[in-house]
């Protein structure tokens, strides 16, 4: 029973982390598919959202209003980023655009550092978690943290709406067309500036949701909190075949599962109920998967990224072994 319970809890865990990664990866993938820009500052949008959320909640705004303001604020930052930094370098070599996004990230991080100092806040702020996200949800005898359930539900709602948008609406179609062939899209009469801005806006909105949920999960926020998540989101996007929205979603959930497995496996020999496996197997597990490996999880995840780039650069859904897709 305990093992079943454990498995269900971990599954919910994996799905909720996965939906966060998916929310982030989708934004990266949308922008990449149109502009071939890896926007490293995407993680910093998430950070901006987390801070906006903290400020709004400190100011005792009702949660609903706060969420709307956070999304609007983050979308504005995302649009400004596109207009000021990325539009002028459109068409520059890949490396130049990538480096620009690193610089944009630096500006956002230090800008936030400056803002918090200006407001007399410390660098690291404890995130004021709204009450609705605290506690647990009970399904019969199984309880799951409410945050995980909420993350999963919100993530799924956002992703389903996004999929409706890109398949059923004309702006969504235009976006997919621009991703396939920017020139041809222009010849259709699509205003590509508008489509690109739209991609940034949607990506920023999703990053804002992810940022809020992530901040609640972490319990504290700082200006550098976006760096690791954006790298993870990048991995998710690569797993799904970079540039495909559906792929990014799949990649997000795969990465979530991978992380939970990598976190759960080390030390599994210690928690298995007696009689589940033979003692010699248990000893073997304890020897080869000691709990001290847990700390290396990210190293394994990034090693997986590099292997992925090497052998399946087009993702688990794409065709194997073609460098760069066109």
């Amino acid at each position: 029973m305990t093992l079943v319970y454990y498995a269900i809890q971990q599954t919910v865990n994996a799905l909720s982390i996965g939906s966060l990664y998916a929310l982030m990866a989708v934004g990266l993938a949308m922008v990449f598919s149109i502009l071939r820009l890896i926007n490293f500052a995407h993680g910093d949008l998430m950070m901006v959202a987390a801070y906006l959320a903290a400020f709004a909640l400190f100011a005792n705004l009702p949660l609903g209003l706060a969420v709307v303001l956070i999304i609007i604020g983050t979308v504005i930052v995302g649009l400004l980023m596109e207009r000021i930094a990325y539009r002028p370098i459109r068409g520059a070599p890949d490396v130049a655009t990538l480096l620009t996004s690193l610089a944009v990230g630096q500006i956002l991080q230090n800008g936030m550092l400056l803002t918090t100092r200006f407001l007399g806040q410390p660098i690291q702020i404890a995130f004021p978690t709204p009450d609705v996200l605290n506690g647990v949800v009970a399904f019969g005898s199984i309880t799951v943290p409410r945050l995980n359930v909420v993350s999963l539900v919100i993530g799924l709602i956002a992703l389903v709406s996004l999929s409706f948008f890109v398949t059923r609406t004309v702006p969504g179609l235009s976006m997919r067309a621009a991703a396939e062939d920017l020139t041809a899209a222009q010849l259709m009469g699509i205003n590509i500036n508008r489509v690109i801005a739209l991609a940034f806006a949607i990506g920023s909105g999703l990053a804002a949701i992810a940022g809020l949920l992530f901040a609640v999960q972490a319990g504290q926020i700082n200006p550098y909190m976006g760096f690791t998540p954006v790298l993870k989101a990048f991995i998710a996007a690569v797993i799904g075949g970079f540039g495909s929205i559906a792929g990014a979603v799949v990649g997000g959930f795969v990465l979530g599962a991978l992380e939970v497995i990598l976190t759960a496996l080390p030390g599994i020999g210690d928690i298995l109920p007696p009689g589940m496996v033979s003692p010699s197997t248990q000893a073997l597990l304890q020897q080869w998967l000691p709990s001290s490996l847990t700390g290396y999880r990210d190293a394994f995840v990034f090693a997986a990224l590099i292997l992925m780039l090497l052998f399946r650069p087009n993702g688990i859904l794409g065709q194997p072994n073609r460098e760069e897709m066109r």
Partner: peptide
Amino acid sequence: EGRRIFGGL
């Protein structure tokens, strides 16, 4: 030239 249709659509 080259048709440039959107192959994935």
